[in-house]
Design a protein around this nucleic acid. Structure first.
Lengths: 221, 221
DNA sequence: TTTCGTTTTACGGTTTCCCATAAAAAACAG
DNA sequence: CTGTTTTTTATGGGAAACCGTAAAACGAAA
């Protein structure tokens, strides 16, 4: 059961969102800090007083200002905290959607959950805290999907070219002309169609829109 | 004219790419550092010796290791450097494609150029250095486009819902069913079609693929 | 309630996409 | 060079998307 929570977050707006969510869990007065250094000291002190925190919710990036910090960001904070209280649950609440970065948080820093700051992040935040409260890790859905798909198809230059053209609004039937211009072969419409449907098949996609979204997530385009 | 260049970059591969590009400009032996602290000290020392750098090419994110750094990342480095040599040209070479982050680099940190690490970044790097050499700022094309488009349409919850469904591979003709399920109105296929075509019209897009790519770039989905 | 104006939905024609098949071209081996 | 295999391109039918128009539903005001 999660009772004592510390929030490290320098953005006012994000703070409000987190607070509201926590209220729904009956966690009335979570502790706030706006600097990583403060977070570290609070956790350390609580541990020493025999009143450890159950959960740390932290951002990754913190704006820098005149207060010089030893711990510059969320990543460093997590590393530092793990030294003094390895069992502390950590939920990262950040804007990054780079699958590779998020993946590393789980594998290297051993975090318990990641929620991306987005429109309806309150919902996801709730689900994440609930999951972590049950001693389980919370993986955002889109990450799970990505990890699974990562290795199922490796994109060639050819693939990327076609997909980039699509993302630029070129109609599929006009792609052959563009390929000819760039002297890329094969340039036939059938070849383009076949390639696209093959990619989508291996990735389990049904529509081009899905493929574009995936490639954007992966940073291919 | 750019003669003396310092590169702050901890990734071996990226370093090579930059080096090649610089060679084409006749900048034979640029200086390299793998840590921001080193970059800062080099710039400071050169300035004091009356042999200042003309250009700093830096990454934003630096991997942390056993060497504890005062300056954790490229952003902090830029801030620090601006203190001691405000006129130094700065070109950021990083992987981020978050339009908002990049925009801030220009507006807050006053950088002279940004090039995103991508497949053919050498070309863009060259163009950027050339532009900066002429005392002009280099703006990546896609950023210019985004900034222009940003204000042309503001996305509602409804828009995001539809676009998200598309990105998940739902067929357009099946979207009404999903909207009904979520009790979102209007749910008619015609309304969905009209909404999508309206969005694409205001943004100057022709295809859904383009819209998906744009929304991913903007972090809407 | 009636009327007017707006929003939502339904329908039909055209374009584009999707997919299977076949023809053509290229690559390869003997 | 000939025959075989693979790759690329062409073609056509059916499904989905696109786009304009008209009907229906809804809301507000008289």
């Amino acid at each position: 059961m999660i009772k004592k929570v510390l929030i490290a977050e320098d953005q006012e707006s994000a703070n409000i969102s987190v607070q509201k969510t926590l209220e729904e869990f009956g966690i009335a007065d979570p502790h706030y800090v706006h600097y990583c250094d403060d977070a570290f000291h609070k956790i350390k002190k609580a541990k020493e007083m025999g009143d450890s925190y159950d959960l740390l919710i932290t951002d990754l990036s913190f704006e820098e200002d005149e207060r010089v910090q030893k711990i510059p960001d969320g990543k460093a904070l997590i590393l530092a905290v793990r030294e003094i209280q390895p069992e502390l649950k950590i939920l990262v609440f950040s804007a990054t959607r780079e699958a590779t970065i998020i993946e590393k948080l789980y594998s290297k820093l051993d975090i318990d959950g990641y929620v991306q700051k987005a429109r309806n992040d309150a919902k996801e935040l709730k689900l994440a805290i609930d999951t972590i409260g049950k001693n389980k890790c919370y993986y955002p859905r889109h990450l799970l999907d990505l990890v699974k798909q990562m290795n199922s198809h490796d994109f060639t230059e050819y693939d990327i070219t076609i997909i980039t053209l699509l993302a630029e609004g070129i109609m599929q039937k006009d792609i052959p002309a563009h390929l000819l211009e760039k002297q890329i072969s094969p340039s036939g419409l059938s070849s383009v169609e076949k390639r696209l449907s093959r990619i989508k098949e291996t990735l389990g996609f049904s529509k081009n829109e899905q493929l574009i979204a995936f490639c954007k997530d992966m940073g291919f385009i």
